[in-house]
Design a protein around this nucleic acid. Structure first.
Length: 632
RNA sequence: GGGCUCGUAGCUCAGCAUGGAUAGAGCGGCAGCCUCCUAAGCUGUAGGUCGGGGGUUCAAAUCCCCUCGGGCCCGCCA
């Protein structure tokens, strides 16, 4: 039985008591008490009623509790009054635990049908194709990938897109480097990844040259202009470079287990016809208005809810950048025709075909990538205002009766800690952290962190498993490195700046991904050593140790936790919950024996407790994109 | 100037929407625990003006107002 239903039972018992006692039907809460000494659930109802009828809460509580004790109850065993007037409920543990374990063993653990099969687009990564991913980009990838996994698990049809800004200044800069400033288009050092070469060397140095010699910036204008013309030599050259960078970026993403359905190229968003069409509709619906005076005279602008204006169409009739975003957002929600053509790009490590948009004919048969009910866009918080404008506009555009939504899933940036900044040679002065900057070379590449983590995990794993073969060691060490980085990038609230500290990130103990993997392996080991899953256990009447009880109550909340994370789009909650379960499991593990328990029926019940724990944990780890291993 | 956001233990963070019973974890510190299912673990301990002030309330980390400090956004660039 899920925790939620238990709450519901308590709630209706209270409501029934209020009715029979002639008390007003007030709003009240049913929540978890601070300690299990008080029972599994408690309610503040007596305070609320007491205030209304001007009575002492304790007196009211006593009346309600004795009334409830007269009722027939399903799982609630006992009601008591405590403190200033709390009603505390304790449940029939044997019954409740039996239902909890059965759910975990026989059903999809924690499954809640949040999505009812609706189609959702999750767009993430979207790194300019002129450099390698740094640790900040990786936060985006991890958030997006975990949200996609979470929504998929809760019955959404999820499409994962990666938006490629192939026509912006950043790409132009490296093309300038190759075409005008003499950088070879192949790295001299044979082993360096091409994306790292472009970002760490060419992009950074080109920007240094711009700074020293401002006329060179003219090259950028030339390149940008040429890149608008698909027939030009520069265009073809840029296309080739972009693809090479992309391939390398995608390698980094697949290293940590992130995959996509389609790459949408900015330059393929066709402005002409489709844009005119939607622009007319925006005018008709009065979502944008013409400015005849003021600083935006002659432009079509959108006025947001706080009265700020954003120019959509310049006075010369051309569209601004955000217009492209609006059109693209409308495409995602299926509000305009599908103007893209598609072709296959690569086969990813997980076997799935990655599609891309194209200017050529494209393939006739291809999956549908748009037409979603909900479009979720993982973009850092600096874009919040512009993204909000798009959400507002589209909401007004589709109207009240439509459920279509455009969501900006914003997150704070990743900064470098003082120590880490110093380590890579950045002046820190008195700041507590330093923002990264791709242009000035102040960042830590994702690949670098992954490599360091891999080496460390490899050593640790080898130390613990001296006889293991190389293939297994590599596999497990890689998986541990991935779990460490994923966990450290997802564990905190999206709205907070993540201060990245290399020393911290290289930790494999404590509140980390490897801790989950370790705990899983420990638990799984018990099941494996036992060799079978007991089948005829009907009643869980021997799990009455405090540690078992705490673990079981926590396990019973899995559906609530998964549901909450999915509805609120808070992937960090999954990490937090998984960590808590592991803490409780390890406490139990240290204190009580499973295999060596003498009482056979107690032993079997414990085996099933451990087994249901592994199933719950595996589910959460799958959502987090962290692999489980029988040994680590 | 306008707007957004963060401030909780030495450090990194939960808790705040829906106010309540001793404010929770991890790291780091100190003291312990491997003849027993993996010590990547566990136990104990020290460590807190919940940035500050005021208000609402029987009750505020949580709600309201003010204030201080950090960060971000505010182009007919993309």
């Amino acid at each position: 039985m899920p925790f939620k239903i238990l709450k519901g039972e308590v709630k209706s018992l209270i409501e029934k008591a209020l009715k029979e006692l002639g008390y007003p039907l007030v709003e009240f809460l049913v929540q978890e008490p601070p300690s299990l000494e008080y029972g599994e659930l408690s309610s503040n109802v007596a305070f609320e009623v007491g205030r209304k009828v001007k009575k002492d809460p304790i007196e009211v509580a006593l009346k309600i509790s004795s009334k409830i004790m007269e009722f027939e109850r399903k799982t609630v065993k006992h009601v008591s009054v405590a403190g200033p007037g709390y009603l505390n409920f304790s449940v029939d543990r044997i019954k409740y635990f039996g239902e909890t374990i059965n759910h975990l063993l026989k059903e999809k653990p924690g499954y809640v049908d949040v999505g009812k099969g609706i189609r959702v687009i999750v767009e993430h990564t979207s790194v300019n194709p002129n450099k390698a991913l740094h640790i900040g980009h990786l936060r985006n990838v991890v958030i997006g990938d975990i949200v996609h996994r979470l929504l998929k698990y809760t019955n959404h049809e999820v499409i994962v897109l990666n938006y490629i800004d192939d026509s912006g200044a950043q790409v132009a800069d490296i093309i300038v480097g190759f075409k005008f400033l003499g950088f070879p288009d192949k790295p001299h050092e044979g082993s360096i990844k091409f994306d790292q070469y472009c970002g760490d060397h060419v992009y950074v140095k080109v920007n240094q040259i711009y700074a020293q010699n401002p006329q060179t910036e003219n090259y950028r204008r030339i390149v940008l202009k040429e890149m608008e013309n698909p027939g030009s030599e520069i265009y073809k050259f840029a296309k080739d470079i972009i693809e090479k960078v992309l391939i390398e970026q995608l390698k980094t993403c697949s290293e940590i287990g992130a995959y996509y359905d389609c790459l949408n190229f900015e330059s393929h968003i066709m402005f002409s016809n489709t844009w005119k069409n939607i622009f007319e509709q925006l005018k008709e619906k009065k979502l944008i208005s013409y400015c005849s005076e003021g600083k935006n005279a002659g432009c079509w602008v959108y006025r947001d809810e706080s009265g700020q204006e954003k120019v959509i169409i310049r006075s010369d009739g051309t569209a601004t950048y955000i217009a492209k975003d609006i059109l693209y957002a409308a495409w995602k929600l299926g509000l305009v025709e599908d103007f893209f053509k598609y072709e296959k790009f690569i086969v990813q490590k997980n076997g799935k075909i990655l599609w891309r948009t194209t200017l050529s004919e494209g393939e006739k048969e291809h999956p549908t990538f748009n037409n979603a009910e909900v479009a979720i866009n993982v973009i850092d918080i600096r874009q919040a205002w512009l993204q909000n404008i798009i959400s507002e506009m589209l909401k007004k555009f589709v109207g009240r009766e439509s459920n279509k939504r455009y969501i900006h899933l914003g997150y704070e940036v990743v900064s470098l800690s003082k120590d880490t900044a110093k380590e890579i040679g950045i002046e820190v002065s008195d700041k507590e952290f330093v923002h990264m900057s791709g242009r000035s070379g102040m960042y830590i590449n994702a690949d670098t962190v992954l490599e360091k983590l891999f080496k460390l995990s490899y050593e640790e794993t080898k130390k613990r498993n001296p006889d293991a073969d190389e293939k297994w060691l590599n596999e497990v060490a890689h998986s541990i490195a991935v779990s460490a980085i994923r966990y450290s990038l997802i564990r905190q609230d999206l709205g907070k700046i993540l201060v990245f500290d290399l020393k911290d990130a290289l930790k494999l103990e404590g509140d980390t991904g490897p801790y989950l993997q370790y705990t899983y392996a420990r638990a799984y080991n018990i099941i494996e050593k036992y060799g079978r899953i007991p089948e005829n256990v009907k009643v869980f009447d021997k799990l009455n140790e405090e540690e078992e009880y705490v673990l079981l109550i926590e396990l019973s909340k899995i559906r609530e936790k998964v549901e909450e994370a999915a509805i609120k789009l808070q992937p960090n909650k999954i990490a937090e919950y998984a960590h808590k379960l592991c803490l409780y499991f390890n406490t139990f593990y240290e204190k009580h024996q499973v295999l060596h328990e003498k009482d056979e029926s107690k032993r079997e019940q414990r085996i099933l407790l451990v087994y249901s724990f592994t199933r719950a944990l595996k589910t959460l780890m799958d959502i987090l994109g962290i692999e489980t291993h029988k040994r680590i």
